[in-house]
Amino acid sequence: MYSKPIFKRFIIFFSIAIIIFLFGLFPELVLSIYVKGFYPIISTCLRWISSLFPFALGDILYTLLILYLLRLVAKFFWRVKKKGWQKTDKLAIPIYILNTLLIFYISFKLLWGLNYSRPSITKQLNISDKKYDVKELVLLADYFIDKLNTLQPQISPKLNYDIKQLREKAVADYQDLALKNPFFKYNVPSVKPVINGWLISKIGIEGYYNPLSGEANVNMKLPAWVLPFVTCHEISHQMGVAREDEANLVAYLVGINSKDVNLQYSVNYNMLRYILFEIRFKSPEDYLKLKDKISPGVLANFKAENEFWAKYNGQMSSYMGVAFDKFLKLNNQKKGIKSYQNIVVWLWNIHGKELKKSESQSSVSPKD
């Protein structure tokens, strides 16, 4: 282990990392050069390669990477045991570790992470960020409850999906919506089930995007009525929508424009989860009143989903939640996990005018 070559590599990697960091400070530049230029090329290539494999290639790559790092650690300790601690190690080892971290940082940012620095997609989709009050939040909840109460009896009684069905349905809906808005254009699909559904469920993860392989990975152990939304959410990450709240928004817009009742139900069901969580926090009294309006069929789905997570969730999910919260904050999502709730603001701005108009019309008494 020689310090001079390692130090030279450190200077190179550090300089590249600084350039990438500074580049990320200019959202419009990121949008024009990275999001609309470099990223679509690299992500399409990655998806094409990973689509050739029937399993989650990214999971295998992560495993190999971990094994490689463990091998390096074992090799180092074996060398120390055999030859003793060298003087050059005092400087070389920290720099070697920093070089490894810098390689991970550069790779992550170039493969996908710079998408966190793009301007909010709500600007591209012309959706306002105007805040709501509690009364408006309750009005929004009423809308989604009515929607779900209507859709729930129409969904397939024995709803069951395999990954092929999920992929085909989601891709078709993205393509249909892309005819109206090119923002939703999605090429070369690569949607895979996670390899270890038990572990992923234990951690508390519904799905994830893998930057190494460009794959959208879905936890197929989830209840069937949750899966379509999760699939659309992960596909949005493949398209370069990095932020979780914005991925929820894209999945919702795809779902409500779908001709598939099961997909419509899935996205509306997941949106109601976020809305009820917000109301429960801001107005517990209204939460209890709204809960009574939810049909037995929808309540049964909520109960079954809670039972699913109760079956798997343990201390690990709490630890992973903290880690994910830190990860989001490091990537321009200052609210961390709480940023998921931004979707409620956008849902209000999508439906608010319509709901207020409907409310005002219903409050006007008919003339004699």
Rank of each mutant, 00 (worst) to 15 (best):
F324G: 04
Q152D: 01
P182T: 09
I235V: 14
L288S: 08
I41E: 09
F23D: 06
F53T: 07
P94M: 05
T88N: 11
N126D: 13
L263Q: 05
P193G: 14
K192V: 13
E244P: 04
K356Q: 12
E28Y: 01
S15L: 05
E215S: 10
V73M: 06
V30S: 04
P153N: 09
N301C: 02
L69S: 05
P27N: 03
S50L: 10
K147V: 07
L199K: 08
K164T: 09
Q152V: 03
S156G: 00
G58P: 11
F324V: 02
N126P: 09
V188A: 15
G58K: 13
I19H: 05
I42M: 11
I343H: 02
S32Y: 04
Y209M: 12
K335D: 15
I343E: 01
L25F: 08
L151Q: 04
L330G: 07
V254I: 14
I60S: 05
F53K: 02
N149W: 03
L253A: 01
I121E: 00
A172G: 04
Y132L: 10
A242C: 14
L111K: 06
P189H: 00
F7Q: 10
I294V: 10
S128E: 10
Y274D: 08
N115A: 14
A178V: 03
V171C: 00
K130E: 15
F53C: 09
S339G: 08
Q238E: 12
Y209D: 11
T88I: 11
N99M: 07
Y340W: 00
N149T: 02
G214V: 07
M239D: 10
M320S: 13
I103Q: 07
M316V: 15
K221V: 03
Q238F: 13
I33F: 15
K8S: 12
A172C: 04
K202A: 14
L222P: 10
I11N: 06
